[in-house]
Nucleic acid binder design. Structure first.
Length: 478
RNA sequence: GUCCCCAUCGUCUAGGGGUUAGGACAUCGCCCUUUCAAGGCGACAACACGGGUUCGAAUCCCGUUGGGGAUACCA
């Protein structure tokens, strides 16, 4: 999208409302804001839009900050709580009223509802008709004196409102779709529109990157910025993130909040990278990029203008790529909380590291990796009855396996090489293929049919563990 | 309903008047291999449709269809 923009420092903000966990859509918005700030210099401001006290929650405010910090996002200013700036917002309205740019509206909720219903019946969108816009001042004064409640509405200019959106292009909204909207509710509280614009002006915001759901609010905001005498920032409206069903991302298709991905064992670098690429690309074929690599080439003009479907499979692939870049020691540290959660604690650190080493190419997330580890340390393993039956059906298996168990028990050194050598020697001696022994051995020791090299597996489980599991399995074979 | 936005492989995307329409994920195959992965190599796979404009359209314009968003004294 070609939009005229002056290079140089920016002042951007991420302004979530604390009504829930940080959603991946919000996280992506925050990422683009931060990327623009890092690319151009300036400041990235965190502002919590908690004007709706009913739905806001201080715990969520905390959670959002934690989630942003976990993702590696760093804000330069804030967090500012919008609720603490209400007086400032009211002041702004007083100024607008004094300047004749806003007016008091005594329309009741009932009147408005009736008009809305009527508009609906006609098949058109409801727009406040401006009933009180040019009301007789004496009447207004009388009602005020009588203590009647009123809302304050902005006088829209009555002309088309245009702005250049750096992701959508040139936007034009004719006056017919814009009405005199509410700035201050009749209970004296500011609406979102008022708070946002006043705060953006006060904080010197130069670029607003936000979700597409705000696109149709933008002409309202442009009018307010102008009425307030503030500089209108540049806008960029991001398309939404969709679920597999191409509808708005919902719980139905799995995780939607940053917290949930964290709990799944996704690395923050991976989620950051994945989200950044869901709606932006550097223009070449690079995909695995660090934040610094991205901010070095980030331009808002390359933000995509069509919605993207969230692809969990690709996120997992990307997570695997980042997991691969971690040393085993680092991986063990990252695994800590997950191991604690599944109760695998207090195990020998050397054996744990070896187990991680063996399992790491087989797991795409920290959680998956953690869950593959107890098998190495458990007292016993479970066997699938169908598989037990399979080996029972061949009467030559049990005696051979028993002999192998005996030789393993007698091994002077319980090493991978020795285990390997002993098995192959026995197979050779009895004229069977190594695989004939390897498969039941794997099952006996791990309870699984797949996994790391069987000798690594047996060595790690150890002499006692292997003997115990082999014994139990042999007992099942009868 | 009305207004607005969007439309390249199944998915994320590059490209943007003349390309064998490129990459990645997923899928499938082969190699490696005691198994499962990982890794290597390869295959399949896209310009929604209809009209224009043009010597030439996936690319520009209009329409249709489809999807999404907004329609609050919520944010």
């Amino acid at each position: 999208m070609t939009v005229i923009d002056t290079p140089g420092p920016v002042r951007v903000r991420f302004a979530p409302s604390p009504t829930g966990f940080l959603h991946v859509g919000g996280a992506r918005t925050a990422i683009y804001n931060e990327l623009l700030r890092r690319a151009r210099g300036g400041a990235f401001i965190l502002r919590i839009e908690d004007t709706d006290r009913e739905r806001s929650d201080d715990r969520m405010t905390r959670q959002i900050q934690d989630a942003l910090a976990w993702l590696g996002l760093e804000w330069d200013e804030g967090p500012f709580l919008q609720s603490e700036r209400i007086e400032r917002h009211r002041e702004a309205v007083a100024g607008l009223l004094a300047a004749g740019k806003a007016y008091r509206c005594f329309a009741t909720q009932e009147e408005l509802d009736a008009a809305r219903k009527e508009a609906e019946a006609r098949g058109s969108a409801f727009l406040y008709p401006g009933t009180w816009r040019d009301a007789d001042p004496a009447e207004v004064a009388r009602r005020m004196a009588a203590g009647e409640p009123f809302a304050v509405r902005l006088k829209m200019p009555g002309t088309a409102i245009t702005f250049d959106d750096f992701v959508r292009g040139h936007m034009v909204f004719p006056p017919e779709v814009l009405d005199d909207y509410v700035l201050l509710r009749s209970d004296g509280t500011p609406t979102y529109h008022l708070s946002v614009c006043v705060d953006d002006i006060d904080m010197g915001i130069t670029h607003v990157i936000r979700g597409e759901d705000h696109l149709s609010n933008t002409p309202k905001h442009v009018a307010l910025f102008q009425a307030l005498g503030g500089k209108v920032p540049m806008f960029g409206h991001l398309p939404l993130i969709l679920g597999q069903d191409k509808k708005r991302l919902s719980k139905r298709f799995g995780a939607t909040s940053v917290e949930e991905f964290r709990a799944q064992g996704i690395l923050p670098q991976a989620l950051y990278n994945y989200l950044a690429l869901l709606g932006w690309s550097p223009g070449d074929d690079r995909e695995l990029m660090t934040r610094d690599e991205m901010s070095a080439v980030f331009t808002p003009e390359r933000l995509n203008d069509s919605a993207a479907v969230f692809d969990q499979a690709k996120l997992l692939w990307m997570n695997f790529q980042y997991l691969t870049r971690l040393s085993t020691a680092e991986l063990v540290v990252e695994l800590g909380p997950f191991l604690a959660e599944i109760g695998l604690t207090g195990v020998d650190p050397v054996r744990l590291a070896t187990a991680v080493e063996l399992q790491r190419p087989r797991a795409q997330s920290l959680r998956e990796l953690a869950e593959s580890l107890p098998m190495y340390f458990a007292e016993r393993v479970e066997y699938d009855p169908a598989l037990v039956e399979k080996y029972k059906a061949d009467p030559t298996v049990a005696p051979l396996l028993a002999e192998l168990a005996a030789r393993y028990a007698a091994l002077p050194e319980f090493s991978v090489a020795a285990l390997d050598e002993a098995l192959r020697h026995l197979a050779n001696e009895r004229g069977v293929k190594a695989g004939f022994l390897i498969h039941p051995l794997r099952l006996a020791v791990s309870g699984l049919t797949g996994g790391p090299g069987v000798f690594d597996l047996v060595a790690l489980v150890g002499r006692e563990g292997a003997a115990r599991r082999l014994g139990e399995f042999l007992a099942l074979l009868g």
